[in-house]
Design a binder for these strands. Structure first.
Lengths: 232, 232
DNA sequence: CGCCGTATTGAGCGCTCTCAAGCTAGGTGG
DNA sequence: CCACCTAGCTTGAGAGCGCTCAATACGGCG
């Protein structure tokens, strides 16, 4: 829970304020919770938002920060299903199963707004433009990680760097940003080992396609990277 | 276009009859098209439903048959994004981009019903239970092919065989069905070559985990297959 | 400043790919 | 009806990409 001022400040910029701000009177959940801040959570790095097998009740809108969703396979490998950044909605994939199939964990300090699914449905019914937006978001998530089907490690990693650059907020320079996840996380998402990720990043750096120093990265030759990634 | 009798016969069993049958009077599209059959298409094997870059206007409900969606990468490889069977809806992933990003092709003789997206939105707004069902379907598609993140070829193929068995209609015997796609298609979906698919199927057969004769397959030891696939 | 998780780099191995040669099944035409 | 024909499937041998294991370097945080 965070203080009211910080909350309302954030909410004005949030695409999902209709879910949180009491403009939409008919939602009984709003009436029971006269302060929207009550639905907001702050997560520290590595803190868990939900576990698999938790009963599905809420979607989560990311106000600030970054999360990953993953599950652990029989051999103990962490298989990352997706990364979620500011403005993304978490939990759509859970609707059909009724419980969370994955764990969701904060990669950095993160603020999320909890949206009870029942209210979500109600609000969609009342608000056609919001409904259209949600279909848009879900459609976008259906296309997430399309590059995972690429054959080589280089292709997938190149496409990944471009994907992240479009979804994260840039630093000072265009196409420069901070990777919120570890090499291991990148590998667990791209089906590569951390070593392979590191090796290919070094190779991109050597070829002056990117500048990289630990988490800080800048794409120097976007066209070249797109060529490798096989993205138009 | 097919004859009225055959059409209405099919529609009664279809979850999406609300989109097609004139029970829902307010949809002006229904009023302009007094015969639902006009929206139905028959596709022969290998016939194309839509191409990439075609403007997105319609969703497609599969009445009968099987399709694949794919795109061709820079090296000419066909990368298959998904297989779609009877009862599935095609086109959700296209909502956000405004045009079809993939090609959709029939694997076998197929019947689809065309659902104009504008009418779809209208109908969702009028029909809360349908809206819930659509969210359910999209959520399901978000989880499709979760096993593609598995590491080994055996894992992915084992999971694939189980997935398909659950989505296709069984033949005479439980867990026996006809694979609607080629070895090459399976490989293009699972990121394997046709040779590797063939080799592993032969190996499963040798180990009496499955019975397989060309397209006809029967799962003999489901538990064993689940173990390999790392599925609970 | 020292610790420990994370990242980098190297050497060797193995799974899957490539290339190639038979084999099978289903469709076509004589 | 059967011989052919072709696309798809199977199987084998060898090569290469990415993995495993290992050692070193870095960097964030106490």
């Amino acid at each position: 829970m965070i203080d009211q001022d910080q909350n309302s400040q954030n909410c004005e910029q949030c695409d999902f304020s209709p879910f949180c701000i009491a403009e939409n009177k008919p939602v009984h959940w709003m009436q029971e919770n006269n302060a929207a801040a009550k639905q907001q959570f702050q997560l520290k790095k590595n803190e868990v938002l939900y576990f698999p097998q938790n009963t599905f009740r809420n979607l989560y809108a990311i106000q600030q920060g970054n999360l990953k969703t993953y599950h652990i396979d029989a051999d103990g490998n962490e298989l990352i299903k997706g990364f979620y950044f500011k403005g993304d909605i978490l939990g759509f994939e859970t609707i059909y199963s009724g419980h969370y199939l994955l764990s969701a964990v904060a990669l950095t300090p993160t603020v999320v707004c909890e949206i009870p699914y029942d209210n979500f449905l109600e609000l969609l019914q009342l608000n056609p433009s919001l409904q259209k937006y949600v279909l848009y978001l879900m459609s976008q998530q259906l296309n997430a990680g399309f590059y995972l089907s690429s054959v080589t490690a280089e292709q997938r990693l190149a496409a990944f760097l471009i994907d992240i650059s479009l979804r994260l907020e840039p630093l000072d320079t265009p196409l420069s940003y901070l990777l919120p996840m570890s090499r291991q996380d990148m590998g667990n998402y791209l089906r590569l080992t951390a070593e392979t990720v590191s090796r290919i990043l070094s190779q991109f750096k050597k070829n002056k396609i990117i500048m990289i120093d630990n988490k800080k990265i800048q794409i120097l030759r976007l066209e070249q990277l797109k060529l490798i990634a096989d993205i138009p």
